[in-house]
C-alpha cells in the first residue's frame, strides 16, 4: 500500500466515524403494561401521536376491550396476594416506586415537554408526582388506624369497623394530566390494597407508559397495576360493565360519559367514584380521604359478657 493510498484510507475512516455520529434515531415502542409484561395490543392497532408542530412523536397502542379483559384477569389474579401483604410492605413498595421515578426524572420531564408542557411545568409535575407517591407510601399503614373505629352499641357486643380494599378497581385517568393525574388516582387505590387497571390519558400517554417501566423495577408484583392506552370512547362501557371489576374511578366531567358509567356500573353495584375537579396540583388532591374512596367498611359484632 502506497503512502497516498494509506492516507486516503485514513480519511475514509474519519468520514465513516463522522457518519456514525449522526446515528439513526432509536425510537421507543410505547406498549401496554399488563401482568408485569409489555404486550402490544391484541388488536394490533395503534394511533399516531404528533407534537404541537405536527411532527410524529410515537405510535401508541390502541388498546381494545380484549386487552382490558386480559388486564382484569391479571388484576384479579394479583389482588389476593397484594391485599394480603402487610400494609407496611405496601408502603415500602410505593416508596420504592417513588425512588425509581426520582432517578428517571429527566426522562419524564422530557416526555412531558414533548407533549406541550413548558420546562418549568414539566419539572413541577414530575417533582409533585414523586412526592405524591411518597405521600401515599406514608399513609399505606396509617389510614387504617385513622378510619377504623370501635363503636358504642347498646347490646353486649364489642363492635368495631375496619377497612378492606374493594378489589379490582378500573380507573379512567384524567385526560389533561399525563403523569401527576395518573399517579394521583393509582397511588391511593394501590396503597389501600386494591389492584388496578388504568386507562392513561389519550393525548398524553408517554409518561404513563414510561411510568410502567418504573413499576417494573419497583418490586411491585405483576398485575397489581396494569396500564392501557387507547380511546375512552371505545373502552368506557366495558370498564363500567365488567362484572369482575369492583370499583370504578372516573376522572372528567362529560355528562354523557358519567351517565353511561353510572348506568353500566349498576349491574353489579360497582363502587363508582367521579372526580370532576381537574386541578391535580391542588391541596385536596393529596389526602387520606382519596384512599377511603376505594375501601369497604367491615363491621364486626363480637359477643361479650356471655
Amino acid at each position: 500500500m502506497s503512502k497516498a493510498e494509506r492516507k486516503a484510507e485514513v480519511v475514509d475512516l474519519k468520514d465513516r466515524a463522522a457518519a456514525r455520529q449522526e446515528r439513526l434515531p432509536v425510537l421507543k415502542t410505547y406498549k401496554l403494561f399488563i401482568d408485569g409484561k409489555f404486550p402490544r395490543s391484541e388488536s394490533e392497532r395503534y394511533y399516531a401521536l404528533t407534537s404541537a408542530n405536527g411532527e410524529s412523536i410515537a405510535n401508541v397502542q390502541l388498546g381494545s376491550r380484549k386487552d382490558f379483559r386480559n388486564a382484569v384477569v391479571a388484576a384479579r389474579k394479583a389482588f389476593p396476594g397484594w391485599a394480603g401483604r402487610t400494609a407496611y410492605n405496601r408502603g415500602q413498595i410505593l416508596y420504592r416506586m417513588a425512588e425509581m421515578l426520582e432517578g428517571r426524572r429527566a426522562q419524564f420531564i422530557e416526555e412531558l415537554e414533548t407533549l406541550g408542557a413548558s420546562r418549568s411545568e414539566a419539572e413541577t409535575e414530575t417533582a409533585m408526582a414523586v412526592d405524591r407517591l411518597i405521600y401515599y407510601a406514608g399513609w399505606a399503614d396509617k389510614f387504617q388506624q385513622v378510619f377504623s373505629s370501635v363503636n358504642p352499641v347498646a347490646s353486649s357486643h364489642f363492635n368495631f369497623s375496619m377497612l378492606e380494599p374493594t378489589g379490582v378497581a378500573a380507573l379512567l385517568a384524567p385526560e389533561d394530566s399525563g403523569l401527576l393525574g395518573l399517579i394521583s388516582v393509582v397511588a391511593p387505590a394501590v396503597a389501600g390494597g386494591n389492584s388496578v387497571v388504568v386507562l392513561a390519558s389519550h393525548s398524553k400517554p408517554l409518561a404513563a407508559i414510561t411510568f410502567s417501566e418504573v413499576l417494573h423495577t419497583s418490586d411491585l408484583p405483576a398485575g397489581v397495576i396494569n396500564i392501557l392506552t387507547g380511546t375512552r370512547k371505545e373502552l368506557l362501557k366495558h370498564f363500567a360493565s365488567h362484572m369482575d371489576v369492583n370499583a370504578l374511578v372516573y376522572c372528567g366531567s362529560d355528562a354523557e360519559e358519567i351517565r353511561t358509567v353510572q348506568l353500566e356500573a349498576a349491574e353489579n353495584l360497582k363502587r363508582v367514584v367521579i372526580e370532576e375537579n381537574s386541578d391535580w396540583q391542588s391541596e385536596e388532591r393529596q389526602s387520606p380521604y382519596t384512599i377511603l374512596a376505594t375501601q369497604e367498611v367491615k363491621t364486626t359484632w363480637h359477643p361479650i359478657g356471655l
Binding site: 379483559r69 366495558h238 365488567h242 362484572m243 369482575d244 349491574e267 353489579n268
Partner: peptide, 9 residues
C-alpha cells in the same frame, strides 16, 4: 349480555 362476567356470580 355483552358484559364480561365474574366467577363471583
Amino acid at each position: 349480555t355483552g358484559a364480561y362476567q365474574s366467577i363471583d356470580y
